[in-house]
Amino acid sequence: MGRGYNLLLILVTFLVLVAAVTARRPRVGFYGNRCRKVESIVRSVVRSHFRCNPANAPGILRMYFHDCFVNGCDGSILLAGNTSERTAGPNRSLRGFEAIEEAKTRLENACPNTVSCADILTLAARDAVVWTGGKGWSVPLGRLDGRRSEASDVNLPGPSDPVAKQKQDFAAKNLNTLDLVTLVGGHTIGTAGCGLVRGRFFNFNGTGQPDPSIDPSFVPLVQARCPQNGNATTRVDLDTGSAGDFDTSYLSNVRSSRVVLQSDLVLWKDTETRAIIERLLGLRRPVLRFGSEFGKSMTKMSLIEVKTRLSDGEIRRVCSAIN
């Protein structure tokens, strides 16, 4: 009986460990009864911050891209510190941190030490799309928070990258060309700093002239917003004419060469990415529905290098600092 009991104990322990490992794999409904209000709390906080300042919606969405493309979707972008990811050049203009921290505070009160900051940011990115008129999607949850956040790790796709480089960067994250084009469509909300784009509209490649691939009627609009000697931190809409609505307008502007980012404009010049844009705009069959495809691509991105073992991550008590 002693031997049988020991074997039973070993088996039970093994099954518990297996269950624990399985439980940490991101899935829809991960928190179950342990935190039934997780989605409603995050949704409410994002709505409040969006109503206070609509720029928080694209800010949170952009923050999520920047988090997932550096060491995976682990909330490392949220960590503060003199050399953290936040301090890297591309991240200094990020906004929306207060919304994530408020959601974390409310969730710690509702269900302590249960919901990771990485999951909060994942939900907030989805809700930012919804509150700007986009289509929602079911979000797999169960990520742990990363403990590493170094500015030196930040190597994000750039605003002047050619299509081949963009495809390579996305493929390295297990994202295909459809994901690339669809996620770029997320630029339908948000802004860019004038210092980032001004060169294309005044002195493209040292020519002293605007980029000839830009629609000529679009050039003076951006030049007026971003004067040659103006403030580099002034923001210009990414999606001219529909900057606050999550729709296909941005892809239409790519097609019309009326976008400020060179990396987006060149997508219309490449045969593969152009065909995808046409399908998302309903101009080529089989037609792709942008809202549905965006949710699918966001879900794929949300699973990049997630932390699922306690040896790799934790559930932070506050999002800006490791425990």
Rank of each mutant, 00 (worst) to 15 (best):
T105S: 14
A172G: 03
Q209K: 15
L283W: 08
L61Y: 12
A171T: 07
G2Y: 10
F14C: 12
T13I: 07
G72T: 05
I189K: 07
Y5A: 14
R43H: 13
R309S: 11
C117N: 11
G199Y: 08
C226A: 05
L180E: 06
D237A: 13
G2R: 14
Y64C: 05
A124I: 12
V306C: 03
N155Y: 08
I60K: 06
C226L: 08
S252G: 15
T122F: 01
V236P: 14
I304V: 15
R34I: 00
C194G: 14
V266A: 05
D67W: 01
M301I: 00
F202P: 15
G158H: 09
R3A: 08
G133E: 11
C35K: 09
S257Q: 12
E272F: 03
Y5D: 10
I276W: 03
L7E: 07
V38D: 12
I10A: 08
G190P: 13
S292A: 10
E98A: 13
T114D: 09
E102F: 02
G81P: 10
I41V: 15
H66W: 05
G186I: 04
D245C: 06
T13A: 13
R126I: 00
G185F: 03
V184M: 12
A124P: 13
Y31R: 04
F218A: 00
S297P: 10
V306L: 11
P58C: 02
A275W: 10
E101P: 05
N82S: 13
V306H: 09
G206V: 08
R316K: 14
S152C: 01
T122P: 04
V18I: 14
R200Q: 14
V154G: 03
A243S: 11
V184D: 01
F14E: 03
V236I: 15
E85I: 06
N82V: 12
P216L: 04
F69G: 03
I100V: 15
F246H: 11
R258V: 00
R147K: 10
L175I: 01
R3E: 10
Y5C: 11
E278T: 02
A99E: 11
R147C: 01
S292K: 11
P216K: 03
R279N: 01
G75I: 00
R225Q: 11
V115L: 11
I304M: 10
L141W: 07
K165L: 12
A19D: 05
V266Y: 08
P286K: 09
L156A: 01
G2K: 14
L123W: 10
G81T: 04
F65G: 08
F69V: 00
L94N: 15
R255Q: 15
D245T: 15
P162R: 09
R95G: 08
D127S: 01
E305T: 14
I304W: 12
R47S: 08
A118F: 02
D270A: 05
G146W: 07
V46D: 02
